[in-house]
Each structure stands twice: as C-alpha cells, then as structure tokens.
Design a protein around this nucleic acid. Structure first.
Length: 101
DNA sequence: TAAATGACGCATG
DNA sequence: TCATGCGCCATTT
C-alpha cells in the first residue's frame, strides 16, 4: 500500500531531497524510485503536503512532459533561479534538466 | 459501499 | 506542442 502516512511519504521526500540543483525529476520517476510506479498521483499529493512541511525542494518536481503544477505560479520562478531553462510555453526543458541516474 | 476527484502517465491524432 | 481519451490508484465526498 502507498498511504500518505506510510513509508511512501518518507521515500518521496528522501528522493526529492536528493534531486541535484539545476535538475528536475518527474512524478512518475519518483514514484518508480520509491517502489510505487503506479502511484504517481500520490507523489503529487505528498508533494502538495511537503509545502506545508516546508523543507523540501518540491519545485524541482514536474510532470513527465515538464509541465509545472497547475495553480502554482511560484515554481517557475524558483526553477529559473536555480538555472533551469524554460520554454516559451512554460515547460521545463527536460531534454537538458531531467534528473538522470 | 459506490462514485467522484486529482501537483499523473502514456498512446493517438 | 496541443488536444483527447484511457488507465492507474489512494483519498475524499
């Protein structure tokens, strides 16, 4: 199971915390690394909570297409500050910045 | 208990 | 790149 109060949350945060600066990771990627490849949605849920937790670079996590979180305007600025290059449409250039392992 | 929801992913066109 | 549609699954209503 991948309930939010389970290890899942800890796993997600641990991975997010290890995303190198100037690099972004996708929800699906984190989900897969945490061992819950089908629960990409839960990753998003956890990250939304991480904002309340505070100390995690959740802004480095985007969708598989490099799309930012809907309704979250800060993310683009934060990523730009870290050197992430954005496209005109507002998508991250995954080709260059996606977290490779 | 069932139906709706969502910071998603992938396949098509 | 954008628009649709379908699948996935925990959470919420």
């Amino acid at each position: 199971m991948a309930t939010l109060n389970d290890e899942f949350l800890y796993q997600v945060f641990a991975i997010v915390e290890e995303i190198p600066l100037g690099t972004v990771a996708t929800y699906g990627q984190i989900a897969r690394l945490s061992g819950h490849d089908k629960n990409a949605r839960l990753v998003g849920k956890a990250l939304s909570l991480s904002e309340y937790f505070g100390k995690y670079p959740c802004h480095r996590v985007v969708s598989s297409q490099g799309r930012c979180a809907p309704g979250w305007f800060e993310q683009k600025d934060l990523l730009t500050q870290e050197g992430i290059t954005f496209k005109e449409n507002g998508c991250v250039d995954l080709k260059k910045h996606q977290w490779k392992m």
